[in-house]
């Protein structure tokens, strides 16, 4: 099964030629993407599926990169969206992130996982974008999934504790308050809250992506939670 076999890259020269055909299992030899890599006839099994897709992309198979886009776009979308609070900005940034990753994939040597590499690109580009955007931010929030209504945490957060439905706050009201509280955080604090609280990433992974120590991740989280508590305390009182 050709797709599950990783291909080793070797130093060689080749002609760069863009190929946008996305046919899987093409009989044609794939055109090479990187000028220092080529597909070896010698094959070896690579257990990590990302590595295999990366090797195929480096070998000039664009369909392999498509698989990586499909695999990573929901997760990276969430990361960028919760940082920007704007769907349109997120869409543009995510496109740029994948374009940059595709252009730079020849430089990816596998020292870190592809997952970490992609997240690092996304974080850097998002923070750069936010620095440029500065104050001109207009939130464009996505509607929460209807499943939120059945989430016990949502019920607990929106009821007044007496079970009185008339006192319940709406989904949109909660969303607005959460977003306002998040946007009050600095970029550095918001990114750790997004990765840890919303995306459920472990401290070690966050530390690797942000190139900081785990202790710094914990302290940033602590500080961010305290700020969020203050912001949401007002919401609870109202």
């Amino acid at each position: 099964m050709g797709n599950t076999i990783g291909l080793r890259c070797q130093v060689s020269s080749f002609i760069l030629e863009p190929n946008f055909s996305h046919e899987r299992n093409s009989a044609k030899a794939p055109l090479l993407l990187c000028n220092h890599l080529h597909m070896s006839t010698e094959t070896e099994i690579i257990p990590n599926n990302d590595q295999e897709l990366v090797a195929r992309t480096q070998g000039g198979d664009p369909s392999a990169f498509d698989e990586l886009v499909v695999r990573y776009s929901p997760r990276l979308y969430g990361l960028i969206y919760h940082m920007t609070s704007n769907h349109e900005d997120t869409n543009d940034l995510l496109q740029d992130v994948f374009s940059k990753a595709y252009r730079s994939i020849c430089n990816f040597r596998g020292k870190s996982s592809f997952y970490t590499w992609m997240h690092s690109i996304s974080v850097n580009m998002t923070i750069n974008f936010l620095k440029k955007r500065n104050r001109r931010q207009h939130p464009s929030l996505n509607d929460p999934d209807s499943n939120i209504e059945n989430d016990p945490d949502f019920i607990a957060a929106t009821s007044n504790g007496n079970g009185d439905p008339t006192k319940q706050v709406s989904i949109h009201e909660l969303q607005k308050k959460l977003n306002t509280a998040m946007m009050k955080l600095s970029h550095d604090h918001r990114i750790v809250v997004t990765m840890f609280d919303i995306q459920g990433m472990p401290h070690a992974e966050i530390a690797k992506i942000l190139k900081i120590s785990e202790g710094t991740v914990r302290s940033r989280l602590f500080y961010a939670h305290r700020q969020l508590q203050n912001s949401l305390h007002e919401f609870k009182k109202n």
């Binding site: 979308y77 969430g78 969206y81 919760h82 769907h87 997120t90 929030l141 996505n142 509607d143 929460p144 999934d145 499943n147 939120i148 989430d151 945490d153 949502f154 607990a156 957060a157 909660l174 969303q175 959460l178 977003n179 998040m182 809250v193 609280d197 919303i198 995306q199 459920g200 602590f222 939670h225 969020l228 508590q229 949401l232 305390h233 609870k236």
Partner: peptide, 18 residues
């Protein structure tokens, strides 16, 4: 609100989907 409660409330943002 404890840190655990805070974590649960913030986690609700994951329902915001495109």
């Amino acid at each position: 609100m404890s840190h655990e409660k805070m974590h649960r409330v913030i986690r609700l943002k994951r329902y915001e989907q495109p």
